[in-house]
Structures are given as structure tokens and as C-alpha cells.
């Protein structure tokens, strides 16, 4: 049991270290300049698979956007940009 614990921790540590380096490289860009599409790609995947714009109509996206703004504590700007993108691409 101890060994398995140790190995799991080790795997996680190695993964974390390698992905950290990647993240630092890509975190230069200011969020204010990001497009709705990019924010959609980066944020919606954090908890569940990213839905495609085609999954819902405009009114539905607005409701889902508000629901996720509350549930996921998205900033208002992020949520609005993402909804506009999803509505334009569905």
C-alpha cells in the first residue's frame, strides 16, 4: 500500500513539474486580450469535457453561461465573451 501511495505521488509530481513548465510558457498573454474562443477552450475543460457551440441555441447558451458563471466562479467578462463566441459559432 505504501509503495503504491509513493508511486502515485511520484507520478503526479513528475506530471505536475512537466506541465508547470508548459503553463508558464503559455501564461504570458493577458486575459483581457483573449478571444471568447480561447477562453472557451481554456475554461470549460476544467471540470468536464468542453461542449461544442452546436450543442445549444443562443438562448440556451445564455442560460448555461450564467449557470457556469455562478457555478465555476468565472469572471463576468470571461462568461460574456464565451457566450458571445458560442452564440456566433453554433
Amino acid at each position: 500500500m505504501k509503495k503504491i501511495k509513493f508511486i502515485t505521488c511520484l507520478i503526479i509530481a513528475v506530471f505536475m513539474a512537466s506541465v508547470f513548465i508548459q503553463s508558464c510558457a503559455s501564461s504570458k498573454e493577458a486575459i483581457a486580450n483573449k478571444s471568447g474562443a480561447q477562453l472557451w477552450g481554456e475554461n470549460c475543460i476544467r471540470c468536464h469535457n468542453t461542449p461544442s457551440p452546436a450543442d445549444f441555441n443562443d438562448a440556451q447558451w445564455k442560460t448555461v453561461g450564467l449557470h457556469m458563471q455562478v457555478r465555476a466562479n468565472l469572471t463576468k467578462d470571461e462568461a460574456e465573451k464565451i457566450v458571445v463566441f458560442l452564440q456566433s459559432a453554433n
Binding site: 501564461s27 481554456e42 475554461n43
Partner: peptide, 12 residues
């Protein structure tokens, strides 16, 4: 309190 240090929101 949640903190997302990277601009790409990958870590919280």
C-alpha cells in the same frame, strides 16, 4: 478562496 495563478486557467 480559489486562486488560478496562470493566465490559461489550467491550475486552481
Amino acid at each position: 478562496i480559489g486562486f488560478l495563478p496562470f493566465a490559461n486557467s489550467s491550475l486552481e
